[in-house]
Design a protein around this nucleic acid. Structure first.
Lengths: 185, 185
DNA sequence: ACCTCATGTAAACGCCTGTTGACATAGCGC
DNA sequence: GCGCTATGTCAACAGGCGTTTACATGAGGT
């Protein structure tokens, strides 16, 4: 037994992410998480306080939005969608935004976190691109499209036959481009 | 006591819809549903077999897509979004698609049902509008946008400050219009 | 009026959950 | 080497869950 509390905490958080992503908040059990981490259940309460706090810790998230300052104005939408696709494809069953999108549907804490991301990360980005005016509404429109994409791919599990990546990047990129910079009706 | 089994079954289904919509599948309890319906818990098992079967019964859903044959081709997108907005605003805490969108995130049965709606209702509609070719992909793109909108409004509870209805109908209607009829990249 | 069966109730069962308190043990400072 | 504390285990608890079983009761046919 290694007896390195930091390491086991990290293993717990990592296992937690996997379980929350796969089963949502309600259906993942602390026993399952502890088992995957190879430690006793009691440690979750000891280290994090409880299941909810572990969840909060597990989904602290940064979208890692790319630097868009050097991207041509009319490629911003596509570039943004590419970023999310790449991000999601990268970490197979582990991406945090996917955890949140799934979990937020039935868990108020998670829903709050997604809203916080909209506030702290999406809206500021849109403000940098399109200015203050209407930034909140533009960002919300962008959110409907990106979250809808995530939902279809990772909740409904629509295969590439339905959403061909290249085609989707193109079509949805155009949409985001409009939401960012075109005149709103 | 009325002793009308059909009526009490309907009251159970109706209460079930409300609870599943508010709390998702895992967090609604058969006891809660029975209490709201004003009957004993045991009747749920007796009449429906169990919680899962009651759920399946409660979310049998028809989008009631409007007749689009007389709508000008370039107004289809906006018209469609209007339809969904009206539908959602109508039945305050009771719309089935909202139940599904929330529940599907953590419940495979529900996710399957949403996919079925895509197959049996959205794709055929798109086929009527845009023809067979690419109907599946166009329908999927439409689904990303509409489900994303539902998600932001009813999972994240974004207020009208974020998604002003008229503005959203306009902007998102344009998007759907493109997904339905413009050339795909 | 009575018997009968559909309808509804009450209580218990068995299981699983998150959490807790008492106990073991490994490793570090002395 | 000794002891102390951080680390980890174990077992039990209390509560909630869906389901089932045995029992009550109303209403309709005869």
């Amino acid at each position: 037994m290694s007896r390195d509390s930091e390491a086991t905490q990290e293993r717990l958080v990592s296992a937690a992410r996997r379980h929350f992503a796969l089963y949502g908040f309600e259906r993942t059990t602390v026993r399952g998480i502890a088992a995957e981490a190879g430690v006793n259940v009691a440690l979750i309460s000891r280290y994090f306080g409880g299941k909810e706090e572990l969840f909060a810790r597990a989904v602290a998230i940064d979208l890692e939005l790319p630097d868009l300052s050097s991207v041509p104005k009319d490629h911003l939408g596509k570039r943004l969608i590419e970023h999310f696709f790449k991000r999601w494809e990268g970490n197979e069953a582990d991406d945090l935004l996917r955890v949140l999108v799934r979990t937020a549907a039935t868990n108020p804490i998670a829903a709050e976190k997604v809203s916080a991301i909209l506030h702290n990360q999406i809206i500021p980005m849109v403000t940098r691109i399109a200015g203050d005016k209407d930034a909140q509404r533009r960002a919300s429109l962008v959110a409907t499209q990106i979250l809808g994409l995530a939902y279809c791919r990772y909740v409904l599990n629509l295969s590439d036959d339905y959403l061909a990546p290249q085609q989707a990047i193109g079509a949805i990129g155009e949409t985001v481009q409009r939401y960012l910079l075109s005149d709103l009706p």
